[in-house]
């Protein structure tokens, strides 16, 4: 019961602190901002390590295996793992089940090509050593090059070929309504595309075409803006619903009490600031 009440008070305090930003930058907003940034940074770092690095990298290099069955290279390879276990036991666990010693993480198939990713990751840490910090550029170059190459096909396929295919529509379908729709769509695509011609001066007739293109874009932007604002308002209503719920007796009047305290503190600090000025 008390944890629920405490949670409600924390939620109300942080919500009101963030909303207090509408008045001006103040101590409550600063506090909420720093808690939010600090907690989320730590949370993301932890999640990234335990959900990504440990199972997907170390788990693929050293999947769990019965130590007694190891021989040859595998014995040497899992020997390295054992060394890491001695240093970082929680990250590289070993466990004994029914008298059998198991080494490794998870049950994904072993894939030593992940060593390449591991090395690139280690290169990033070399930023901490200025003399060999330049090696981190190799990792960055790989990420950027890989991303550009990978996206090239995807964008060309969906945003170019796919769009052209979808826009090849008949001007007359046999029905007036759908024919008008098709014409609006085709004119919009052609003029919108023309607006993004950079090496041609937009003057005379070309300026008219370009103008029509930008009008199409603005109509889309207006519709999209209205749609998003509606979504934001529903989020705001959700927060207000929580504040109303937490203002009840069962939550020890969290909302009104905290609201009054914060208003009083803000009024006093503003008055003090004015006096000092």
């Amino acid at each position: 019961m008390y944890t629920g009440i405490l949670g409600a008070w924390v939620a109300v305090f942080l919500t009101l602190s963030i909303l207090s930003y509408l008045y001006k930058d103040n101590v409550f907003y600063k506090l909420a901002e720093h808690i939010f940034v600090g907690v989320s940074a730590a949370h993301w770092a932890t999640i990234a390590f335990w959900n990504q690095v440990q199972p997907n990298l170390f788990g693929r290099l050293w999947p769990q295996t019965d130590v007694a069955s190891l021989s040859g290279f595998d014995k040497f390879w899992y020997g390295i793992y054992h060394g890491l276990h001695v240093l970082f036991g929680k990250v590289f666990p070993e466990e004994t089940l029914n008298g059998v010693l198991y080494r490794g993480i998870g049950d994904q198939p072993q894939n030593l090509t992940y060593l390449f990713a591991f090395i690139l990751g280690v290169f990033m840490l070399f930023r901490l050593i200025p003399k060999i910090g330049w090696l981190s550029r190799w990792s960055l170059a790989y990420v950027i090059g890989m991303a550009a190459g990978l996206r090239l096909y995807g964008y060309m396929s969906s945003d170019v070929i796919g769009q052209i295919h979808a826009t090849m529509l008949p001007l007359w379908t046999g029905h007036l309504g759908s024919s008008i729709n098709n014409i609006i769509l085709i004119v919009g695509v052609l003029t919108g595309l023309f607006y993004f011609f950079f090496s041609v001066e937009h003057k005379g007739a070309l300026k008219v075409v370009s103008r029509i293109g930008i009008y199409y874009l603005m109509i889309y932007f207006g519709a999209s803006f209205g749609f998003a604002v509606m979504g934001r308002i529903s989020l705001l209503i959700g927060r207000f619903n929580d504040l109303i719920e937490y203002s009840g007796k069962q939550y020890w009047f969290a909302t009104p009490i905290l609201l009054i305290v914060m208003v009083v503190v803000l009024v006093l600090t503003t008055r003090k600031e004015k006096e000092e000025a």
Partner: peptide, 13 residues
């Protein structure tokens, strides 16, 4: 931070 809205709060600050 990696978090979208925490980052927005920090930039606003």
């Amino acid at each position: 931070t990696d978090d979208q809205f925490a980052f927005a709060a920090a930039v606003d600050g």
